[in-house]
């Protein structure tokens, strides 16, 4: 358990260490377009919240369902980025982001057993949406391949680490072999995850309020 906690802390620290690098443009000047692509989503609250919500939901459903997102999520980001770059900037819609946050939060709070196929479709669609939103900061002189590579790597690393940390938090019963054999949602860890889902839904509601008010 201590070993798991240690690994978890390391992974969390690595993830959080990227957050303070707030200005993607400064990063682009200093470290180039790959790192600009990798850090750009962490400068946007919508990306941070929605990626976190999706990772928590997928992780809470167990390894067998969540592991598909390791590949699908970065692919969705790439598809969305390509679409956004090709058809022009697709302005991110705060209302849609807020609704997605509410839905993901409620699913997590309710402990819904989302089927694998539906989870994959949701994750791909969300990633595509956010990938397109990230295309908004592609400047004419941005190396698009490097930016896309950075974004996909960030998506892969973030979703993989969040899902694994969620699984580790839930404990051994969330292993794939025991995935559906016993409902762990009633122990304190499951309750904590569901409470977190409630918070995400609440943040989504506030975002929706702000979006409709402005």
């Amino acid at each position: 358990m201590r070993r798991t906690l240690k690994h978890g802390l390391i992974a969390t620290a690595l993830l959080l260490a990227q957050a303070p690098a707030a200005e993607a443009h400064i990063v682009a000047i200093r470290l180039g377009d790959f790192y600009a692509g990798a850090l750009h989503p962490f400068t946007d609250l919508q990306d941070v919240l929605l990626w976190l919500a999706m990772g928590l939901l997928a992780g809470s459903l167990g390894a067998a369902r969540g592991r598909w997102l390791v590949a699908l999520f970065p692919l969705g980001l790439l598809a969305g980025l390509a679409l956004g770059a090709r058809v022009g900037t697709i302005a991110a819609n705060p209302a849609i982001d807020a609704v997605i946050a509410v839905v993901l939060g409620l699913l997590l709070a309710a402990g819904a057993r989302v089927p694998t196929v539906l989870l994959c479709v949701m994750a791909f669609a969300l990633a595509a949406l956010r990938g397109a939103a990230n295309a908004s900061d592609l400047a004419p002189n941005t190396d698009r391949l490097l930016f896309a590579g950075g974004l996909a790597c960030a998506g892969y690393a973030a979703i993989t680490l969040i899902m694994a940390l969620t699984l580790a938090f839930r404990g051994p019963l969330s292993d794939s072999s025991k995935d559906s054999s016993k409902d762990t949602s009633k122990d304190w860890r499951g309750i904590a995850l569901r409470a977190l889902g409630g918070w995400i839904a609440a943040i989504g509601l506030m975002m929706a309020g702000l979006a409709f008010a402005s």
Binding site: H7, I10, A11, A63, R67, T160, L161, L165, L167
Partner: peptide, 11 residues
């Protein structure tokens, strides 16, 4: 960290 995460997810 990613190796650990992949082990955990059995990915």
């Amino acid at each position: 960290a990613l190796i650990w995460a992949h082990r955990r997810l059995d990915a």
